[in-house]
Simulated assay, not measured.
Amino acid sequence: MKYAITSKGDSKSNALMHKMRTYLNDFDLQYDENQPDMVISVGGDGTLLYAFHRYKNRLDKTAFVGVHTGHLGFYADWTPDEVEKLVIAVAKTPFQVVEYPLLEVIIRYQHAGKESRYLALNESTVKSVEGTLVMDVEIRGQHFETFRGDGLCISTPTGSTAYNKALGGAILHPSIPAIQLAEMASINNRVFRTVGSPLVLPAHHTCMLKPVNDVDFQITVDHLTLLHKDVKSIQFRVAAEKIRFARFRPFPFWKRVKDSFIRE
């Protein structure tokens, strides 16, 4: 089996990376940064997000596993003192593959320009570069509302515990193929009105945002921040691709939620 390791870059994570690489090579596993069957992320959830985007063109061939060197993460479930156990598991144990849904983002431009397509593991946000964001929101091709406010956040089930949660969105179990639309400080008065609640859309529903005025937009895709001009529409839906995680032991989602947010 071919493997690669990504590190957060701090001294602790780098030391663990080199230690694991030495152990795995002793088991005659092949290190291959270009075409790995497994990617081990050492750091935190941000490090695994980086690894996901680096290998997003190999999602059907590559499985991910995370080692956290800080706080317990939603993606990084192994601890530094379990590295030897993880190495033996990777080298000797058949692993279960768990697949989680991703968010597809397609940005189309005025004048029939080239479209841009992105995949998000956590979420995508849309804000106006200057002033209030004004967007027509369409669901399944039908106008739903005209949003006015600071911005909109569209998240995956795994991303529902991140920025979406801070916006008052629901926490979704990652086995549910859905996306969630949450508002950022919407304007609601006698003149302007939005639904005011997060929306959960199933896999066969598409959410389309269409600008009402001609402005530039700041669009994020996970940790990436992008500036887009001449935007005609921004389309969101559950992606055909999925991320694959290598599981060597149970990793209950609701236990992670409890440990992250309400553990005594």
Results as ranks from 00 to 15, higher is better:
residue 147 F to A: 02
residue 237 R to H: 10
residue 195 V to D: 00
residue 63 A to Q: 13
residue 124 S to Q: 02
residue 220 T to Y: 01
residue 257 V to A: 05
residue 117 R to V: 10
residue 231 V to D: 15
residue 142 Q to T: 00
residue 35 Q to N: 14
residue 242 K to G: 11
residue 142 Q to Y: 08
residue 204 H to Q: 08
residue 123 E to V: 00
residue 239 A to E: 01
residue 199 L to Y: 08
residue 83 V to L: 15
residue 139 I to C: 07
residue 180 Q to V: 09
residue 162 A to L: 02
residue 163 Y to F: 12
residue 99 E to Q: 13
residue 75 Y to H: 12
residue 33 E to I: 08
residue 263 R to I: 10
residue 250 P to L: 11
residue 5 I to A: 13
residue 63 A to I: 08
residue 160 S to L: 04
residue 182 A to W: 03
residue 127 K to Q: 15
residue 97 V to Y: 00
residue 155 S to E: 04
residue 80 P to V: 10
residue 153 C to Y: 12
residue 163 Y to D: 02
residue 140 R to I: 00
residue 113 G to L: 01
residue 88 I to Q: 13
residue 210 K to T: 14
residue 30 Q to F: 05
residue 230 D to P: 07
residue 137 V to S: 07
residue 254 W to G: 02
residue 207 C to E: 02
residue 131 G to R: 12
residue 127 K to A: 15
residue 168 G to R: 13
residue 256 R to G: 06
residue 28 D to Q: 14
residue 251 F to C: 02
residue 190 R to Y: 09
residue 190 R to L: 11
residue 130 E to Q: 09
residue 126 V to N: 05
residue 117 R to M: 07
residue 178 A to L: 09
residue 87 V to C: 15
residue 183 E to V: 08
residue 139 I to K: 01
residue 214 D to N: 09
residue 195 V to M: 09
residue 167 L to C: 02
residue 207 C to S: 05
residue 25 N to C: 14
residue 74 F to Y: 13
residue 156 T to I: 01
residue 97 V to S: 06
residue 130 E to F: 01
residue 208 M to C: 13
residue 254 W to I: 10
residue 196 G to D: 09
residue 136 D to Q: 15
residue 31 Y to M: 11
residue 56 K to N: 01
residue 244 R to Y: 11
residue 53 H to Y: 11
residue 145 E to V: 04
residue 121 L to H: 10
residue 39 V to A: 07
residue 87 V to F: 11
residue 252 P to S: 07
residue 64 F to I: 11
residue 133 L to W: 03
residue 98 V to D: 02
residue 101 P to S: 13
residue 136 D to L: 10
residue 3 Y to H: 04
residue 3 Y to F: 15
residue 158 T to W: 06
residue 60 D to Q: 08
residue 134 V to W: 06
residue 173 H to Q: 00
residue 212 V to F: 07
residue 58 R to N: 14
residue 262 I to C: 08
residue 168 G to P: 12
residue 203 A to N: 09
residue 176 I to L: 14
residue 78 W to F: 15
residue 153 C to D: 13
residue 75 Y to A: 14
residue 36 P to N: 03
residue 96 Q to A: 05
residue 85 K to I: 06
residue 219 I to E: 11
residue 174 P to D: 03
residue 152 L to G: 04
residue 135 M to A: 10
residue 15 A to R: 15
residue 151 G to M: 11
residue 152 L to S: 05
residue 116 S to V: 02
residue 160 S to V: 05
residue 38 M to V: 15
residue 176 I to N: 03
residue 235 Q to V: 13
residue 257 V to W: 10
residue 120 A to M: 04
